[in-house]
């Protein structure tokens, strides 16, 4: 990625010379690195997927999902599954960077730090969407509910964006602590509660085909949450990776 930038003494200079394209190429390089690594090992996606299916299985017996309850609880069960599997993926993806010294390497590169954040967040989002894309049809199949609803898919997308934005930031903090394996969910869950509530209610609204006027408040909440936390994560990420 250093083609255009011959001597980059500081990240800001590198960005000034080739503003957008360099930034985007940095983001893309990080996403590509993660995808290539995952394609080879497949450990992240496999563990997230198996875990997600296990959660659904446990819910089935824990809640004794009879046809009626199954329909009402569907959106809640789905989002709990996504949240748990998401934490697993976020933790693993940042821990890999840390353990293999990749994070230090990335930080030495003459790139804007926030590009690293967006790169990591995008690849995390990508993994999460893949898991969701597999879980949704399996869930439909197992419980005989039609989950192919454009509204529901939009909610899943909006919810995942916010979750991953906060999650990537907090995971990069959590992996730098002594108690990193247990810390991420404790840090993440209380902060994503509004997102979670909105996502569950909006999904339920679409599944029960409520009026759009009843769903919009939740969608607005999701959008506001995404915007606020993306902006804040972008602003503070520098301080997370500062040495």
């Amino acid at each position: 990625m250093g083609g255009e930038v011959k001597i980059a003494t500081s990240p800001s200079k590198a960005v000034i010379r080739k503003p957008t394209s360099f930034y985007l190429r940095t983001v893309w390089a990080i996403v590509w690195k993660d995808l290539a690594a995952e394609l080879r090992s497949r450990e992240l996606l496999t563990s997230m997927l198996v875990f997600a299916l296990l959660v659904i299985l446990i819910f089935n017996f824990a809640l004794e999902l009879d046809p009626r309850a199954r329909f009402n609880a569907a959106s809640g069960v789905l989002w709990v599954t996504f949240a748990f599997a998401g934490t697993l993926g976020l933790n693993r993806s940042m821990a890999m960077e840390k353990d293999r010294g990749c994070l230090d390497g990335l930080l030495l590169a003459p790139v804007d730090r926030s590009a690293i954040f967006f790169g990591k967040a995008l690849s995390n989002l990508f993994f999460m969407l893949i898991v969701e894309a597999i879980v949704l049809p399996i869930y439909s199949l197992l419980y005989n509910i039609n989950l192919f609803n454009p509204g529901l898919i939009a909610v899943v997308l909006l919810g995942s964006i916010g979750y991953v934005a906060v999650g990537t930031l907090l995971a990069s903090m959590a992996v730098q602590t002594r108690t990193r394996d247990v810390l991420l969910p404790i840090l993440l869950f209380p902060i994503v509660i509004p997102l979670f509530i909105a996502a569950v209610k909006a999904s339920a609204g679409f599944l029960q085909s409520l009026e759009m006027s009843e769903i919009w408040p939740w969608l607005n909440l999701l959008i506001v949450y995404d915007l606020i936390f993306l902006a804040v994560a972008f602003m503070v990420f520098d301080y997370v990776v500062e040495e």
């Binding site: 209380p190 506001v224 804040v232």
Partner: peptide, 28 residues
């Protein structure tokens, strides 16, 4: 130094989420 920075970031994130939590709980 890291403890101070991380604490500050988390305090900011936490406080931002509080009104959103209240709003979402109020829609119930």
């Amino acid at each position: 130094d890291r403890r101070a920075r991380f604490g500050a970031i988390y305090a900011i994130l936490g406080f931002l989420s509080v009104p959103l939590t209240f709003f979402s709980a109020r829609l119930f």
